[in-house]
């Protein structure tokens, strides 16, 4: 009889394990994180060089002698350049992330587009899209100061939300991003630096940890 109990407990445990594994997308590659982090670092370096190379942007308040229209036009074109850079970084990061995850899924013998990955992407997309709208609206209203904190906080929330359907470790990365985003709201002038830490350094660290834990 005792034997039955041990058997039953083991079976229940197996059932729980299979339910857990089958509802999570576990082929997210650590390399995706490293790639996204490196892309962010390159993007941030380009942004930094632009900031110092375009005095019209950095010191626009102090150039009283410049005609207002000229200043405004410089500002607008610089802004467009930054938005294009940001979208470019996002596209390169996503493309690489997709590639590495696709490779890992192939190795694991699962489809990258299965029921759990679809659920994971949907959960990731909702806060992320909301953050995108917020970032755009703040930019629209001339509040560039808040772009970095919004990106960090909403991205973090998106990871926390998606963590139910993939490795739960992603949740800790999410919490770290949210914290950085909140700090970023209060420290002026460090937006790009904190953005670089959040999207560059943390991604690389996380990617290496994930790679060691699950890929190798």
């Amino acid at each position: 009889m005792q034997q039955d109990k041990v058997e039953s407990l083991k079976t229940l445990k197996d059932i729980h394990g299979i339910m857990e594994r089958s509802s999570r997308f576990l082929s997210l590659s650590g390399w995706s994180g490293v790639w996204a982090g490196c892309t962010a670092l390159v993007g941030a370096a380009i942004a930094r060089s632009w900031l110092t190379a375009v005095p019209g942007y950095y010191h626009r308040i102090y150039h009283d002698s410049e005609p207002y229209e000229q200043m405004e036009a410089d500002y607008q074109s610089t802004l467009v350049k930054f938005v294009l850079l940001a979208l470019g970084v996002l596209a390169v990061a996503l493309a690489g992330g997709y590639y590495f995850t696709h490779q890992k899924a192939k190795k694991d013998g699962v489809s990258i587009w299965n029921s759990s990955s679809k659920r994971m992407f949907a959960e990731l997309a909702i806060p992320l899209a909301t953050g995108g709208v917020f970032a755009f609206a703040f930019l629209w209203n001339g509040l560039e100061l808040y772009i970095a904190p919004i990106c960090l906080a909403f991205y973090g929330l998106s990871l926390i939300n998606g963590s139910k359907y993939t490795h739960s470790d992603i949740k800790y990365l999410g919490i770290a991003e949210v914290l950085l985003g909140c700090i970023c709201l209060f420290v002026r002038g460090y937006g790009l630096l904190l953005w670089t830490i959040g999207f560059g350094v943390l991604h690389i660290l996380y990617g290496i940890i994930m790679w060691k834990k699950y890929d190798s």
């Binding site: 089958s22 699962v110 299965n114």
Partner: peptide, 21 residues
């Protein structure tokens, strides 16, 4: 029992997913 467990928590599961699971 494994097949049933996976199907309980997922609307659909395909052959390869079950195989690797």
């Amino acid at each position: 029992i494994g097949i049933m467990s996976a199907l309980m928590v997922n609307e659909t599961v395909n052959f390869n997913e079950l195989k690797s699971l």
